[in-house]
């Protein structure tokens, strides 16, 4: 009886998994076949003669390639480093000191960031960047994006930090170690998986960003891939499927690689779960 039940539930799980896989994978299937098809349509078809021609054409577009492999890496990499570093320090500070109403505080900042992240914010952000002489610089984009992403990053981080035991730190404190050393040598190694999650999250957000770069950047040399994608539109303003799909494929690849890397190295999971 028990045996039968477990076989049954195992079968159920397999079916459920297949349904989930179909749900999550089917919409992306076109991205896997279209770039390798000589005459791309909107249907998914395994090409008889898979070709790399589309990629060759894409790689000839210097503007788009620089956007993807230079500008995007700078913007997303920069935002990732700054968000991860600043959020980790801040959440550690929040976690290890008694600050009245810190949860409310972080939540209110998140509400603010929902306003500042929207289209209504474009004029203030532009003028701010202008007065700080940050127009048409990657630094400007990174700083503005960091400001917007920080509250949610701290919100996620602080529970990673809360969940690690404090006894080591307290012991180290007794031994006379300074706070920064305690953070570096004891706390940081323990929260590293959390840092990895927040870093990826920040990277992904900055990698796909469109509105802020359009408002803040000017020269084609500095534009990210989300803008460069439009250079694969035809005269009539419609996407050229062969090239757009190939570029979109390249555009999506790095985040996948980064995720797989981090997942393999640290395990991509919300360490201990975020608590209320």
């Amino acid at each position: 009886m028990r045996n039968y039940e477990s076989t049954f539930s195992k079968l159920l799980l397999v079916l459920f998994s297949l349904a989930c896989m179909a749900f999550f994978a089917l919409p992306l299937l076109w991205l896997l076949t279209a770039p390798f098809t000589p005459m791309t349509t909107l249907s998914v078809e395994i090409p008889d003669n898979p070709t790399l021609d589309n990629f060759r054409t894409v790689f000839k577009n210097e503007f788009a390639i620089r956007a993807l492999f230079r500008n995007n890496l700078i913007i997303a990499g920069g935002a990732m480093l700054s968000v991860a570093a600043v959020a980790t320090l801040a959440s550690y500070g929040l976690s290890r000191t008694r600050i009245v109403g810190r949860d409310i505080l972080v939540y209110v900042l998140m509400l603010f960031s929902s306003v500042v992240g929207g289209t209504a914010a474009m004029v203030p952000l532009f003028l701010l960047a202008y007065h700080l002489k940050l127009i048409d610089t990657h630094v400007g984009v990174i700083l503005v994006m960091t400001g917007g992403l920080l509250p949610a990053a701290i919100f996620m981080m602080r529970d990673f930090v809360d969940s690690i035991p404090r006894s080591y730190e307290e012991a180290a404190l007794v031994c006379g170690a300074g706070p920064f050393r305690i953070f570096r040598d004891i706390a940081f190694p323990l929260v590293r998986p959390g840092v990895a999650v927040v870093a990826i999250w920040a990277f992904v957000n900055a990698w796909g960003a469109f509105l802020i770069p359009v408002v803040m950047l000017r020269s084609p040399e500095n534009m990210p891939a989300s803008v460069a994608l439009y250079s694969f539109y035809s005269e009539a303003g419609t996407p050229v499927h062969t090239l757009v799909s190939a570029y979109a494929f390249l555009y999506g690849l790095p985040v996948l690689v980064l995720y797989l890397l981090v997942n393999w190295r640290f395990g991509f999971r919300f360490f201990g779960g975020i608590k209320s």
Partner: peptide, 22 residues
């Protein structure tokens, strides 16, 4: 674990970003 002042120091970079860009 730490005093408020130390905690605040850890928060300095975040406060900088939050104050100016948020």
């Amino acid at each position: 674990v730490f005093s408020g002042k130390v905690g605040l120091t850890f928060l300095t970079p975040a406060l900088f970003f939050v104050a100016i860009f948020l």
